[in-house]
Design a protein around this nucleic acid. Sequence first.
DNA 1: GCAAATCATTCAGACTCTGAACGATTCACC
DNA 2: GGTGAATCGTTCAGAGTCTGAATGATTTGC
Lengths: 132, 132
Amino acid sequence: MASDLFAARVEAHGLKPKHVGLMVVLETGRASSQLEIARVMGVAPSLVVALADHLEKLGAIQRVRDPADRRRQVLTLTERGRELLATCAELAESADAEFAADLTVTESVVLTRLLDRLAARQGLPTAPADRL
Amino acid sequence: MASDLFAARVEAHGLKPKHVGLMVVLETGRASSQLEIARVMGVAPSLVVALADHLEKLGAIQRVRDPADRRRQVLTLTERGRELLATCAELAESADAEFAADLTVTESVVLTRLLDRLAARQGLPTAPADRL
DNA sequence: GCAAATCATTCAGACTCTGAACGATTCACC
DNA sequence: GGTGAATCGTTCAGAGTCTGAATGATTTGC
């Protein structure tokens, strides 16, 4: 619904919503290896490879072999990645704001609180990562 | 979110969410020719062809050339189609109910009213056709 | 040490949807 | 009335996204 708006805008930064989702996972420290990320995001590991390839090419993340287990690739956000993520957070907020433009303040507060509770119940992150 | 649940369940009836969306459009009389349907649903006309083909094969709709303009195909719901649609409506409601299981009654009422207003503002049908 | 399991990667393919053609029909206009 | 432009449905090739099986590298269990 409003995610389409968000998707269109992050595209200007060379990103798809799933790329942002991956960065959110990294930022919140919910996973570091690619397989963990795949599980958290609910997608196939092969897709994480493609997403990480792109993010690495953009300079948003770093891929480092875990010295303790050299099968694992440890992904970390770079400074550039954090900048990008901050920009995307702003885009998400403004998209939400536009979408809920004709709600009163109290209404929108009520709405976001209800949705947060539903998201939590669903085992999802409470943050704006519901746009994968 | 909850639409995934809905999608999985209508699949048991040989339908995708878009098929249900098309039937809702017919039921609400918002369009009859295929091109109108495409515009209302926001999809390409060629997709409507495929959706209608499938629904016709299931016996849910009828395709009749408009006598007044023989370029147009007029789609109408059959009795079987109305039955299917009723079943889908139940599925949608139960999926919603499960999804909002741990909300109080007043909370869920507030939520649906807010979402309805947002949908209306967006020019969407107020009905459960937000699952396209 | 060696077999089995684990992680990342590649690749083919399924699925959904779009846009450009094309045939049939209707409309505008002279 | 007749002709060219527009409209509707349809087909088809292809883009985009995602999955699952196969492969290679590495680690773990025993």
